[in-house]
Design a protein around this nucleic acid. Structure first.
Length: 179
DNA sequence: CTTTCGATGATCT
DNA sequence: GATCATCGAAAGG
């Protein structure tokens, strides 16, 4: 899980040919009170418990969709929330879907990214290595930033957020290395 | 720049 | 009935 999450940074994620490089991700494991899988399998989170390599998509705040990639063991609810992309493919379509021009605002957040890529409940449970999804390996090694996760109330202190250090496309900057 | 707040609906208690 | 892995607009410094 915590090997998979940072390994996703820099990977190109496309849905129907539209998407970009993953620059921000958060890990949620089965012993994590903040995870949807923590309290066991339900109708909503069923795909979290399915085989790895599938998508888990859920509705957030009744308004947005959020996309996870399920990792590791079938029957174990481990997943990675995709929080931000650096748009590289299908910019015009993303602008149209989002009603915005600024590339920085197209995919810099889990809800925004799903709107830009048109991810919905229909993608829940689909394999992420087959159409409409596609993944392309990172072109080269990247510098990974680590910090606390965003927007949660439980286990908020755990540093399970991973990102591309210094990227302009993060949903929020990572805390400075202190001083 | 910051903080606050409403929208909106499925899910879970 | 309460919660929520969010966003964007609005208001205040």
């Amino acid at each position: 899980m915590h090997e998979v999450a940072p390994a996703l940074i820099g990977v190109t994620l496309l849905v129907d040919g539209v998407g970009g490089r993953i620059v921000e991700v958060e890990a949620y494991d089965h012993e994590d009170p903040a995870s949807h899988g923590y309290r066991g399998r339900t109708e909503r989170n069923a795909s979290m418990f399915g085989p790895p390599g599938h998508a888990y998509v859920y509705r957030s705040y009744g308004i947005h969709w959020c996309l996870n990639l399920v990792c590791e063991g079938e029957g174990i609810a481990n997943a990675v929330l995709v929080r931000a992309l650096e748009p590289t493919h299908g910019l015009d379509l993303m602008r149209k879907r989002r009603g915005l021009d600024d590339p920085r605002l197209l995919c810099s957040g889990p809800g925004r990214l799903c709107q830009a890529l048109a991810v919905t409940r229909e993608h829940d449970g689909l394999r992420i290595d087959r159409p409409p999804f596609s993944l392309r390996a990172a072109r080269s090694a990247v510098d990974i930033a680590i910090g606390p996760r965003i927007g949660i109330t439980k286990a908020a202190e755990l540093p399970w957020r991973y990102g591309l250090a210094g990227s302009r496309f993060l949903s929020r900057p990572f805390p400075s290395p202190s001083r």
